[in-house]
Amino acid sequence: MSLLSINNLSVSFQTDRGVVQAVDQVSFDVDAGETLAIVGESGSGKSVTALSILQLLGDAGTISDGQIVFDGQNLLDLPEKDIRNIRGDRIAMIFQEPMSSLNPVLTIGKQVAEPIWLHRKKTWNEALDQAEELIKKVSIPDARQRLDAYPHQFSGGMRQRVMIAMALACEPKLIIADEPTTALDVTVQAQILSLLKNLTTELNSALILITHDLGVVARYADRVAVMYGGRIVESATAAELYKHPKHPYTEGLMASIPTLDGEPGSRLQTIEGQPPDLLHMPAGCAFHPRCPYAAEICKHAKPSLKEVEANHFRACVGYESIS
């Protein structure tokens, strides 16, 4: 049985301009210890999916449909108190913006120690001792002194290390990292991702790694789900997806990754057109206005994920009608 199993998750937002269907019938599984990457352009619903798991959407967002089964329990059926007990303990989250995700008026030590104090019922002193160990673990030098430092004394990369330390504090079964390196310098991105990957492997935790960078996926993920317009359009193992992308959108993404063996001077391809406006979703397949293979049927029929090869899923009616 999977550690986490999301079935037909739909999330909508009430906005001034209308109802936005940010996530539409999304399903995926994460096994214990596995790394699943969720890839997609900005606005494709990755963060909303991630936040739904811990029900951190805020007042505007509503989970209108679906199940989120974690360790055999549907989290959507649990009372708020039980969800709180899971947050930060069995499921932890790392956010995209290291500059604003740490509290500016609390010391690093206190923020890292807090989940231990809360879930392990330790005294603050015991929790701070553990926090020191965690800060060492994420390779921040002078851990003891750093406990008393404040976030503004840290660089972005260091803050994201702190976020990782905080997420690992209670040795969660599942870590959700929402674009943990997007806001960072390219030079530190790889360090942070390797650190995250190594530490999750060490704890045998599962990792949901959200990114818009397919380049990241190949190195760190076991499996990949590609999102477009609030839906999953393709999912497969990382190796398989790389070698044989089967959805036109994934192909487009692949073509836009710079490679070392690419011809010098050759231009990177980008996908033509704009991501869909969720308030005015195209009928049929959301990708059809940008799809080079779009056929008549794509304008009407909404494709659903089908297993096209063993463990390789794709949502595309156009391909089906061609092949």
Binding site: L54, L56, R84, N85, I86, R87, G88, D89, A92, M93, F95, E97, S100, S101, L102, N103, P104, E114, P115, L118, H119, M163, M166
Partner: peptide
């Protein structure tokens, strides 16, 4: 509305 409040909630705090 700040991000660090979301972080605090994600820790499981009341």
């Amino acid at each position: 509305r700040q991000d660090y409040i979301r972080t605090a909630r994600a820790k499981g705090l009341q």
